[in-house]
Design a protein around this nucleic acid. Structure first.
Lengths: 272, 272
DNA sequence: AAAAACTGTGTCCCGCGGATACCGTGTACT
DNA sequence: AGTACACGGTATCCGCGGGACACAGTTTTT
């Protein structure tokens, strides 16, 4: 329902747009315009029966239910009761549709409280919400790798994290790096959790795998086997996210303490 | 050149093996056998002109050079001078080939030094090597998402990290969680760096993007814009990886200090 | 009324992963 | 020896997915 995400032109991407190196998928300019551009809504032809919102939402439903592999132009169109080619009147290509799905799927970032609450609980909540979001939309883990166009919602999320650290005394790049680190942690652990499906945690899955491989090859991984068996014996649950989050926040707290101990006057004077 | 990765049977995966939820790609048992199984090397037919090693290496070259999208059975076979169907005598399917490429691409984990060096420099080196590895093989970021079979090399990497933390006083699941957190950090930041290609860093790319979007929408991201401009003005380079790594290691150090302060006797007595 | 702008559809093409049948080649058994 | 069998490589075929293209129907403007 936000103001973004309107109708689109037929800017198409190059046929063989998959470049080498760290290349983009699809046409980044087209995706950016899809995500950020306001289309003035045409006045001449018949009324559009579809909308970007509806298409993206349908795509999200399919990807949530059956995974990203089940997301085809065909499946999306069929779920909407249209031909697959009808979608191309709204979306320049599948890559751009996925980008739109990603940004809409992220949604508005949640409120984190005011500055009086302190940076730590706000960042903690932020990271947890992001983590839950990745668990809700596991396909987003796959769609947010590599070069891509960033949407407004994704940027809003980042804005919230940066805002939480604004008055903390950290320098600009440190604030950004902290946000990126936290987001990366949520992403990475969500990938582990999503990999084993629902019900079990990364450590449990790893333990089961080790147990399966151990009779033949386990002797080569002594430290790993010991840690896994100790974890399993103690009924260790999957708390990799909580663990890492606490460690990262502790580290940030340490740095903030060091920065404030330097004295607030020379905030931007020195750089190591 | 390791002892693993030999010839393979023609165990094929189910035609429609792409399941829903956190489903596997391909047949995990086939992939596991590819990665772990020793095939006794057949005795009857003509000599194989190819080898798993050669196929996987060729695939790695293609993926390194032109990205994972350019990796097709056709391209691999053509680079080897064979038909694409010849590959299926060695590899049950593309998914398994990618899994093999991933494990071979990781290679042997580097030596980290002895226990007398302390856990921190060893973990630091480990994370940096892993980070560099992801930068060398950006496609590995895509192939290590979701449910997949873990290969021996990948497990050796994990073993090394766990070994570095073995005598530190952390509990089993804490050791595992620390390793997972560090690996996730390397992965996540490498994803950001790989996204912008070579030459620029994540913050610079973000800054450029913000600068491009700012005239139209920048006012909605005040904290972000401030942090970015401060970073750009100070010539802040991309050190998100270093920053996060230092924070995580600081946090781990804090926890180890707390654990050792509890006294080594009651190591496994309590759990919060 | 006619032209212009726009939406949705039918048809086609190419490239991909993979199944299958086939032929050639080499070893092992009688 | 010869022969049966096992195995490697190839040719052909299929279904599916993304997307180009031309066309038909609808609504507004001239």
């Amino acid at each position: 329902m936000p103001a973004e995400h309107h109708t689109t032109p037929r800017t198409s991407s190059t046929p063989a747009a998959d470049q080498a190196g760290g290349g983009w998928h699809g046409n980044p300019a087209a995706a950016a315009e899809l995500l950020w551009g306001h289309r003035p809504a045409p006045k001449r032809g018949p009324k559009p029966a579809l909308s970007l919102e509806a298409i993206a939402r349908t795509g999200i439903e399919i990807a949530d239910a059956d995974g990203l592999a089940a997301l085809t132009m065909q499946s999306v169109a069929a779920a909407l009761g249209f031909t697959k080619m009808a979608l191309y009147r709204y979306v320049p290509g599948k890559v751009e549709l996925v980008a739109l799905m990603t940004d809409i799927g992220m949604g508005e970032p949640p409120p984190l409280g005011t500055a009086r609450d302190g940076w730590r609980p706000r960042l903690d909540l932020w990271a947890r919400r992001l983590f839950e979001l990745f668990l809700q939309h596991p396909w987003a883990l796959e769609t947010t790798v590599g070069a891509r166009a960033v949407g407004p919602n994704e940027l809003r999320w980042l804005e919230h994290a940066v805002a939480a650290l604004s008055g903390s005394g950290l320098r600009g790049h440190e604030v950004l790096d902290a946000a990126v680190t936290l987001a990366g942690h949520a992403r990475a652990i969500a990938q582990q959790e999503a990999a084993v499906g629902s019900g079990s945690s990364a450590e449990q899955s790893l333990g089961a795998f080790i147990a399966a491989v151990l009779p033949a090859h386990g002797h080569r991984f002594p430290a790993l086997a010991a840690a896994v068996t100790e974890t399993v014996e103690l009924g260790g649950q999957g708390q990799a996210f909580d663990f890492g989050l606490a460690r990262i926040l502790d580290g940030i707290e340490l740095l903030i303490a060091a920065r404030t101990a330097e004295g607030g006057a020379a905030t931007a004077a020195d750089q190591a």
